[in-house]
Computed example of a mutant assay.
Amino acid sequence: MRLAEACRYVRSKNAGPFWITVDLFFPDRAAYDRYVDAAALQPERIAALFGIAAEEVKRFPVPELQVLKISYPRQRPQGGALERDMHGGQQYVRLLDLEV
């Protein structure tokens, strides 16, 4: 199953000028429990997608809300001359086709 199918909603946003946070909203507790620890959502896989070191990827499971938050440093600070996604709102797209 692809992540886009496993989640009710996926979004990304700035977490300050140097970090991006991706929020994965699962439709229910059963889906959350099934996918929250999937290999595709581990720091090594996220790091490979975004070209960063795995030790810089942070995971924040929130079982009460059936959400997994994943944060990682931006490659360039927000608002830089080469910025292509000022608000970080398009960064989640790379995750949608991950097989979970």
Rank of each mutant, 00 (worst) to 15 (best):
L65M: 13
E55Y: 11
F26Q: 01
L41S: 07
V93R: 15
V93L: 15
Y9P: 03
G89N: 12
P73H: 14
H87A: 13
K69H: 15
L82Y: 13
A47H: 06
E83Q: 15
E64H: 07
D85F: 02
D85A: 04
D85Y: 03
Y72Q: 07
L3I: 04
M86L: 14
V22P: 00
I20D: 01
V36W: 08
K69P: 04
V62Y: 14
E64S: 13
A39K: 01
E56L: 12
R8H: 08
F50C: 07
D23E: 13
Q66Y: 12
P73S: 12
A31K: 02
D33H: 11
Q75V: 05
F26R: 00
T21G: 06
M1H: 08
Y72G: 04
A54C: 13
M86Y: 13
V93S: 08
Y9C: 04
T21L: 09
V57I: 13
N14L: 05
A15I: 05
V62E: 13
A31P: 01
R74L: 04
V36P: 02
G79Y: 07
V100K: 00
A53V: 06
Q91K: 08
F60T: 09
G80T: 11
A6C: 12
D37W: 05
E56S: 14
S71P: 03
Q91M: 10
L24S: 01
L41M: 07
F60W: 10
E64A: 15
Q78D: 06
D97P: 02
P77H: 13
C7M: 06
Q66S: 15
P63A: 08
Q90L: 15
E44W: 06
E44T: 13
C7H: 01
P43G: 11
D37Q: 14
C7Y: 00
I52C: 13
T21Y: 06
R8V: 03
G80M: 06
I20T: 09
L24R: 02
V10D: 02
L49A: 09
L41K: 04
L98C: 02
K69W: 07
Q66F: 12
P73Y: 14
P77W: 14
G80R: 03
D97E: 15
R34Q: 09
H87T: 09
Y9G: 02
I52S: 10
S71E: 04
K58D: 07
L65F: 10
